[in-house]
């Protein structure tokens, strides 16, 4: 439904002779805050946790890695997976493949501070078809990819989509839930306004079945727009001490060539 309101917003701004320019503005430099992003997937045997600090707004490096942390994940059966620091701030565990419906506890110790988060990997829902859709917006044809899947009825499901175009890196498109279409055969439009698809582009869609906490994080991020009265940090599973999330997700990939 949000998409439709977005169209409305676009039509309004189109009508309003608006003009846009880049300006300079002075923003405060907040004390750096810890950011922990942990992921456990069913689709790889190398799991990764990244630990960084926020940087000043004007900085031209996107993050400030935090080395020397202790990281481990304990699964529901008590098995402990220790992570080693591969590059500064990036911690990996090899030979560890996540399983659906398994519970995972993440433990992180940074500079004497402990952080803990728990996630349970949802069951896998896979898209059974993928195709190109075309929408005509103010005389311009906009192409995007749509996927179709059967949403499991009776349970809340959360999805996160990433898109890889012509072999470039995966980039998140959106998160979605089944609030309005629980149990339906759903067609999800994956519209990324920053990417212009043309016929012949090869597109890989990664469909992650995520838990509610991860959905809440990304949903908070994607629902912030210039019209948000009070933008705020997305909710963190680590509490006040650190931003971020710990996602145990079941994922699948599906690919197509843009028509």
């Amino acid at each position: 439904m949000k998409t439709y309101f977005r169209y409305i917003a676009i039509s309004i701004s189109f009508l309003m002779f608006s003009c846009e320019d880049v300006i300079d503005i002075n923003l405060n430099d907040a004390d750096p805050q810890l950011v922990i992003i942990g992921e456990v997937s069913n689709n790889t045997n190398v799991q990764q946790v990244s630990i960084n600090r926020t940087v000043a707004f004007a900085s031209d490096t996107p993050f400030d890695p935090v080395p020397g942390a202790e990281v481990e994940v304990v699964d529901g059966r008590g098995r402990v997976y220790r992570f080693t620091e591969e590059t500064p701030g990036i911690y990996v565990a090899n030979g560890f493949t996540g399983s659906q419906n398994e519970r995972y506890d993440l433990h992180v110790r940074v500079d004497g501070q402990e952080f803990m988060a728990t996630a349970t990997m949802p069951s896998l829902t896979t898209a059974d078809s993928i195709g190109t859709s075309v929408r005509n917006l103010f005389g311009e044809e906009e192409k995007f990819v749509s996927v179709k899947y059967q949403d499991p009825p009776g349970v809340a499901n959360y999805y996160r989509y990433l898109q890889r175009v012509n072999g470039e890196r995966f980039k998140m498109v959106k998160v979605a839930n089944d609030k309005f279409n629980d149990g339906r055969y759903v067609s999800d439009d994956l519209i990324d306004f920053d990417v212009e698809l043309v016929a012949g582009d090869s597109v890989v869609i990664q469909m992650q079945c995520i838990d509610k906490a991860t959905f809440d994080f990304w949903n908070a991020v994607q629902s912030i727009n210039p019209g948000t009265a009070a933008p705020a940090n997305p909710p963190s599973v680590f509490g006040d001490g650190a931003l971020g999330y710990f996602s145990a997700h079941a994922m699948s990939e599906i690919s197509t060539v843009v028509q």
Binding site: N28, I37, N52, T54, F57, A230, A232, N233, P234, L243
Partner: peptide, 18 residues
């Protein structure tokens, strides 16, 4: 409310609000 910092997740820049 404007950001007073930023961080990056999966190559996407997110704003840090205080």
């Amino acid at each position: 409310t404007f950001p007073s910092g930023k961080y990056s997740v999966d190559g996407q820049t997110l704003w840090y609000y205080t």
